[in-house]
Simulated scan of single mutants.
Amino acid sequence: MFIATLLSAPEKANLDRVTVESLRDAWAGGAAEWLNPGVAAEFELPEVPANRWQVWEGLQRLGVDLVIQPAEGRQKRMLLADMDSTMIQQECIDELADVAGVGDRVKDITARAMNGELDFEGALTERVGLLKGLPQSVIGQVIAERITFMPGGRELLATMKANGAYTVLVSGGFTAFTGHVAGTLGFDEARANTLLVADGHLTGEVARPILGREAKMQALTEVSARLGITHDQVMAVGDGANDLGMLGMAGAGVALHAKPAVAAQCDIRINHGDLTALLYIQGYRVDQFA
């Protein structure tokens, strides 16, 4: 048995009953259940429809996401999350670069790396090099003035943890930022790269080994083994090419507002919903959010 979940952006709440019930009838699905009126609804399916992606494209034009997944085991016991443009709305290195006066150059490299056009490690090394000489104090300034959380993140963490899940923040970004994000949102642990500092200024180098695609996959393997759970019991979420490894390994790999080349390789694509979509696709109703 499978579950089809339809989702809209919570601030728009434009998922209507006609859309849900018309699709349910066309696919001979079960009774529709509203997880949050106007925002999320689901119904059972005996099989994955052959025209799934054609329907998905049509719904995208209406501002609606569609996710189809096996009904069994969809409530996960571990969350593995990327940070930049996933748990927060910015790319931290881009914000640092903007302060350093090299913003446009770094943003171009970041976009190409996240789209899989550049080697992640090489791109990170090049971008960090452009930050050489920046006062370390700028990091705190960026956190205070520029970093904002992705909507739904607090509810996602609190609800999954209240239901026994373990949460890990794993980022190709930097520990100076993951410490703040993990501490604020309540992640159980965090892994990231370390910016090297000397005499109160960034050296333009990052500590080795650099945490990228392979390290994110390693985190999934190590933590799930430590917890005694299978990869099928893990939900991973990210938006960039360096997330594809962990998204492919996880039982539910969610491409959240992802680059097109990344989303195309994932079955779960959230383009309109926020991070609460990760709760709805696990079957949580809005009144069950912590």
Rank of each mutant, 00 (worst) to 15 (best):
G103H: 02
G200Y: 14
V48S: 09
L185E: 01
L80N: 11
L35V: 10
T175Y: 04
T159D: 10
R154W: 03
G101T: 08
G172E: 05
G129N: 08
M235G: 02
L169F: 08
I210A: 05
V254K: 04
G73M: 08
A241N: 11
L23F: 02
G122W: 00
L227Q: 14
V234H: 03
K161S: 12
D119L: 01
L7C: 07
Q75K: 13
V18N: 00
A261F: 14
R146P: 02
D84W: 13
K216E: 08
H180G: 01
N193G: 01
E33N: 05
L185K: 05
A207W: 03
V99P: 01
G186K: 00
N193S: 03
V237K: 01
L202S: 10
M217K: 12
I229V: 13
Q90K: 00
G273H: 08
P37F: 01
F2G: 09
R285H: 15
V234G: 08
A236L: 10
E117L: 11
A241V: 09
A258D: 06
E21V: 04
L130M: 15
A190T: 01
V234M: 07
G101L: 06
L157H: 00
T184D: 07
A162I: 04
R191Y: 05
A32H: 12
A123L: 00
A250R: 04
E222L: 04
E145G: 03
I229W: 10
A255P: 03
D94N: 10
L124Q: 03
D232G: 11
E222H: 01
G200Q: 14
W27Q: 14
F187L: 06
E47R: 02
L35K: 05
T230S: 15
R77F: 02
M150P: 06
E214D: 08
T203L: 14
V20H: 01
T167C: 12
E21L: 08
Y284F: 15
G63A: 12
P135I: 07
I268T: 06
R17M: 01
V170G: 03
Q288L: 10
D16P: 03
A32W: 07
E155R: 04
F2R: 13
A162R: 09
F289S: 00
L220A: 06
A236V: 07
Q141M: 09
V286H: 15
V48G: 07
R74I: 11
I88H: 09
R74A: 09
A100S: 11
L278I: 07
A277S: 15
L202V: 11
S137Y: 12
A71C: 10
D65F: 08
Q90L: 03
D98I: 08
R285F: 10
E72W: 06
L23Q: 06
E11P: 01
Q233T: 10
G238H: 13
V170S: 14
H272F: 15
G29I: 11
D65Y: 09
K76Q: 09
R127A: 14
H180N: 02
A182D: 07
A50H: 14
W53K: 15
M217F: 02
A13T: 02
L45E: 02
A158H: 06
E33I: 12
V142R: 03
T125W: 01
T159V: 07
A162S: 15
R226G: 13
I143V: 15
G122M: 00
L247T: 03
L196M: 11
A219N: 09
R213E: 07
T221Y: 04
F289W: 04
V197I: 14
S85I: 12
D267I: 00
V138W: 10
